[in-house]
Design a binder for these strands. Structure first.
Lengths: 137, 137
DNA sequence: GTAACTGCAAAATATTTGCATCCTT
DNA sequence: AAGGATGCAAATATTTTGCAGTTAC
């Protein structure tokens, strides 16, 4: 596993308490986190605004990516593969367990290609599968 | 095209001004609408709260479905096929144009099946493709 | 007439912005 | 020391809830 300071340094970010802590959370969580989860798990160690700004920065730098949800929230998960700044490559499937509500990145499952209608050009695609995860089985 | 009152009646909803107008909007829009779009396009003819409640009701009754987005909002689109109350079958791909920002339901493109890891069970799946649409080509 | 629906007011939440201060480099 | 990052306060925006009045059937 990569060491936190490295990840931050590689992205040209200064190494601060909040960034280390939030990054930690992602590294030790096997799944996606919502803004609320982060506030909860850091027990308000720092300002809500800082969380907003940190997440935004991490997305911009390609450290985490956003997962679309259907409930007026955004989930964030670590970019495990070759995401560069401003250019994400998270073509894996996201799985949301309808029992435990966890969101899991299925890194080994690639989003399949689809044939788009004529005159449509694809840039990115995302896929979210809902169901029962291995732990709740 | 189905006639509005029918859609409402079939869902066991009373036919009211707001429901007709919002349903109208969906019928004449070839694409998805966000809560904000609806408020805009009905020029505040009725309360914001009514829009929230109407959308919620429509989703419950299987008249519209939600499209996941990555920007803290929910998009809604008409269910064109066999959606029943409490049970959606919108296995088509959604396309978001990064130029004009419109979201289009590609009804003819079905979400492909993916092989999930052992012990994962699928209930539903959704797919969102970003790119350039036919109009912006 | 009754149940369902709407509008208004207000509460609860969530997000953004500006600025002074503090920390990292 | 300089630039970037944080915390605080406050402005906005969004969503939810309760209730009284209205409408559809």
């Amino acid at each position: 596993m990569k060491i936190k300071p490295d990840i931050l340094k590689q992205s040209g970010l200064s190494i601060t308490e909040s960034r280390k802590k939030i990054l930690d959370l992602f590294l030790e969580t096997d799944g996606a986190l919502a803004h609320a989860d982060i506030e909860k798990n850091t027990s308000s160690a720092f300002d809500r605004v800082t969380v907003y700004r940190t997440l935004q920065t991490f997305v911009e730098k390609g450290i985490i990516h956003q997962i679309p949800t259907t409930d007026n929230s955004i989930l964030y998960a670590l970019c495990k593969h070759n995401c560069e700044q401003g250019h994400h490559h998270d073509d894996h499937v996201h799985f949301i367990c309808s029992n435990c509500d966890k969101t899991i990145c299925l890194d080994e499952v690639t989003v399949p290609e689809v044939k788009l209608p004529k005159n449509f050009t694809k840039q990115q695609s995302a896929m979210v599968v809902t169901g029962i995860c291995e732990d709740c089985k």
